[in-house]
């Protein structure tokens, strides 16, 4: 287990490498996951979801930047472009559903959606 605090502190002085980006993306993803699991408000969950997708994008771009492939292979960037597109589509659909439900039920809280018991 070479994962020591001292190691981290030492690496802060080094030039940023792939692992710094990956740890950052993992942390961001975890924060998003936390939000998804704890938020009661559907808009709040949607925002946490966007954080998770951003973490994926950070991963993709970092992997492209430091990855094994030639820099000409832009797979990672293309993937990131598509993920951004999808995030926009998902946000539009999600907000449409949330607003339509809000009109009927006057709530945006996901756990007050209780006609359907779990």
């Amino acid at each position: 287990m070479g994962f020591m605090l001292g190691d981290i502190l030492e690496s802060l002085g080094q030039p940023v490498g792939l692992r710094h980006c990956l740890v950052f993306a993992a942390l961001l993803f975890a924060v998003g996951l936390y939000g998804v699991l704890t938020r009661r408000n559907a808009i709040g969950i949607l925002m946490a979801l966007e954080l998770m997708l951003n973490a994926v994008n950070a991963n993709l771009v970092a992997f492209w930047r430091y990855g094994p492939g030639p820099r000409e292979a832009l797979n990672g960037q293309v993937f990131a472009v598509f993920v951004i597109t999808m995030a926009a589509a998902e946000a539009a659909v999600g907000l449409a559903i949330i607003l339509a439900l809000f009109r009927l039920r006057r709530t945006v809280n996901a756990d007050e959606v209780n006609l359907l018991k779990g």
């Binding site: 030039p15 490498g17 792939l18 740890v23 993803f29 430091y66």
Partner: peptide, 19 residues
């Protein structure tokens, strides 16, 4: 998640310079 993912990522990729 973090406890699994961060050390795994940290150890999988050594301190390589930015190409």
């Amino acid at each position: 998640f973090v406890g699994w993912m961060a050390p795994a990522a940290w150890m999988a990729f050594g301190p390589r310079q930015m190409p």
